[in-house]
Design a protein around this nucleic acid. Structure first.
Length: 633
RNA sequence: GGCGAGGUAGCUCAGUCGGUCAGAGCAUGCGGCUCAUAUCCGCAGAGUCGGGGGUUCAAGUCCCUCCCUCGCUACCA
């Protein structure tokens, strides 16, 4: 058993949570859960970064007290996570007393060892940017961001002797390829180290900034960013005295987005070296989510609200999409269209249908209980073999943060089980009375599904638990032997009751149009113009003929007299509720200008309007007979 | 300007040491099954592996060069 520590960045409280925050945190949660499954003792940390001028300004703008402001925004992060099935073990805030104490302890320690010095600097300073500018950077002598003239400021500050540790850091990175991943970011950091980095300014005089942590050795200054924010990773573990720090620190993995690579890859490790602490184990860097082709930004109003997406499509689907769609380290594009497409293809069709069909058959053929597994034949053994490979690959890939590839591996098994069922044809076995073989096939399939659900737990916890429950498996996290799952194939107990059906992943409609999300939270109903409505051609016609679709149980072939020379044929999915004979002579409303489409080999020229209700499908008809082909308006 | 990462089927991407590597998923077309969520299964598709040159018996896979995209960086606390 190992100790595993995973962290997200602490999020700056000048903005509400968006997709980027959600992604980092969902990745961290999934990784934490994966390691729990693998039997590690896990500590998962997230939190908020709450100091700095920008926060003070934001609070002023909002007209509230700073503390009140940070409390509120921090709370909005804390409130969001449970909705995304994120279960962090701790939530650190840089305004917490024990964090402040830890920061001061750390500073004092580095100060005493002589790596913090006092020096004077003079330069052009922009208050808006909280930084100095060089002449060259200015546009017309003004700050490019704020369009204000920076002031000449001479000030003394404390500096961290970072340069002293850069060589050691470079060696560490060179000798430990796993330290920074993916590779491209490791290279980037090595490139940074080839340049002259200089020492790090770590303070601000109180005259300029008060909303921060006082330097323990000079009360006229507060820390500036790095020696505050980065230290959260150990203050949350109770550094220096807490036992948790000792246990978890060496197994630490930081998850960050590429914009904060430098502080995490260079500042933080050198700080740790200066304090005489071991370095974290690994830094894992991911890219950005774009919205379609464009960057996500407040000004464009295309900021994706993770909660809205999760509520609309389900948290599990959302989390699955994020992990499956993004190649970790690279940028990826978020669109609802892509989400729906992937949801339908992977979750509804492949996985959901696998559950649906297998559970239904178990119910029909085996009394709803996990059947006994008989002797395995070559098809069965092939499943075990494919399963072994798929699961082993999943685990390896997941460990290396290749989530997308891990899921692709897992889906090898999902698809193979669908193939296996087709090849084995339990329905034929049932008809032929081959109950032994039938039992074995269903057992092998159910057991494979159990493994899939188990491996999906880190990604979509509640859905995975629902799947396991449907399979009648008493789930016990502590008892899971993840590595063992790749080779043993007999986890399900014959005789345990399974669900009679499964519909955990109902197909989603591809709803087009509209912004991908709701920026401010104000839910806009998609209103249509009268012109939009006019594009639909609704008519009433008389059913002249209806018969079952020759190749589909649920479909009827309906011929409707629409006033034209020849009655049009419409394929209607109403066979569950309507007998063909009850339809003939009835007037129904239908969409007349729907693109014709073939449904299981039969052309359908329209769609009959109906209402789904508990008592079956109700058809829409005029209150009294009208000429066939009458237009609805 | 410097450094780095990429440019492989319509889309998203795999391709370890140079020789069944020209692949997968999605999308598309055709066919099959009926247990199942209009689902599942099978089959199909000429992509000059960014252009050019070179090394080699043999190159997406190594070397040179050019083009394009992206990222980082440019005496800045």
């Amino acid at each position: 058993m190992k100790y595993f520590f995973v962290s997200t960045p602490i999020y700056y409280v000048n903005a509400r949570p968006h997709l980027g925050h959600a992604y980092s945190t969902i990745v961290a949660d999934s990784v934490a859960r994966f390691h729990k499954l693998a039997g590690d003792t896990v500590f998962f940390l997230t939190g908020t970064d709450e100091h700095g001028d920008k926060i003070v300004q934001a609070a002023q703008k909002a007209g509230v007290d700073v503390q009140h402001y940070v409390d509120e925004v921090s709370q909005s992060f804390q409130n969001l996570w449970p909705h995304l099935e994120i279960e962090n073990d701790a939530f650190i805030r840089t305004t917490m007393e024990h964090h402040k104490a830890c920061v001061q302890y750390f500073l004092q320690k580095v100060y005493e060892s002589g790596d913090i010095y006092f020096a004077e600097y003079e330069g052009l300073y922009c208050y808006g940017c909280e930084r100095f500018y060089t002449e060259k950077e200015l546009v017309d002598g003004k700050c490019p961001d704020h369009n204000e003239k920076p002031v000449l400021l001479k000030e003394k500050n404390y500096f961290f002797r970072m340069t002293k540790y850069l060589d050691a850091l470079r060696r560490h990175i060179e000798e430990h390829p796993e330290f920074i991943q993916p590779e491209r970011y490791r290279n980037e950091v090595l490139a940074m180290l080839r340049e002259d980095l200089g020492d790090l300014c770590i303070s601000r005089p109180k005259s300029r900034l008060t909303w921060g942590i006082e330097l323990p050795f000079d009360r006229d200054f507060v820390t500036y960013v790095w020696f505050d924010a980065l230290i959260n990773y150990i203050s949350a573990l109770g550094y220096p005295e807490d036992e948790r720090f000792r246990k978890f620190w060496t197994g630490a993995h930081h998850i960050v987005a590429k914009d904060i690579l430098k502080p995490h890859a260079i500042f933080w490790p050198t700080m740790l070296l200066a304090a005489g602490l071991p370095l974290y184990k690994g830094l894992r860097v991911h890219g950005y989510w774009t919205v379609g082709e464009t960057k996500m930004s407040k000004s464009l109003g295309n900021v994706v609200d993770p909660l809205a997406v999760a509520q609309r499509f389900g948290v599990g689907a959302f989390r699955y999409f994020l992990l499956a769609e993004m190649s970790f380290g690279q940028d990826a594009s978020f669109t609802e269209e892509a989400l729906v497409q992937r949801f339908n293809a992977d979750l509804a069709n492949d996985l959901g249908n696998l559950f649906s069909r297998t559970l239904a058959m178990t119910h029909k053929y085996c009394g709803g209980q996990v059947p006994e597994c008989g002797e395995l034949d070559e098809f069965d053994r092939e499943v075990l073999h494919v399963g072994h490979t798929a699961l082993a690959n999943f685990q390896t890939q997941f460990q290396h943060f290749h989530f997308s590839r891990a899921l692709a591996s897992l889906w090898e098994l999902v698809r193979h089980l669908n193939k296996y069922i087709d090849k084995s044809a339990p329905w034929a076995l049932f008809k032929a009375g081959e109950t032994n073989r039938l039992s074995t096939v269903l057992y092998v399939a159910l057991e494979g599904m159990r493994k899939i659900a188990l491996h999906l737990w880190p990604i979509m916890p509640s859905l995975a638990e629902a799947m396991l429950a449907q399979l009648g498996w008493k789930w016990n996290l502590a008892a899971v032997d993840l590595e063992g799952e790749t080779s043993s194939w007999f986890g399900l107990q014959p005789g345990s009751a399974v669900a009679s059906s499964s519909n955990l992943f109902p197909r989603q409609d591809v709803r087009r149009e509209g912004p991908p999300s709701v920026p401010g939270g104000e839910q806009e109903k998609a209103l249509v113009d009268i012109e939009d409505f006019a594009r639909l051609e609704l008519r009433v016609g008389t059913v002249v003929e209806a018969r079952p679709h020759p190749q589909a149980d649920r479909l009827l072939l309906v011929r409707i007299d629409d006033g034209g020379a020849v009655p049009r044929q419409v394929v209607a999915g109403i066979a569950d509720s309507w007998q063909p004979s009850d339809l003939v002579g009835r007037q129904v409303a239908f969409v007349a200008n729907l693109k014709p489409r073939k449904l299981r080999g039969q052309i359908s020229q329209g769609m009959i309007l109906a209402v789904k209700s508990a008592s079956g499908l109700a058809l829409l008809s005029p209150t009294h007979p009208v000429p066939p082909g009458s237009v609805v308006s």
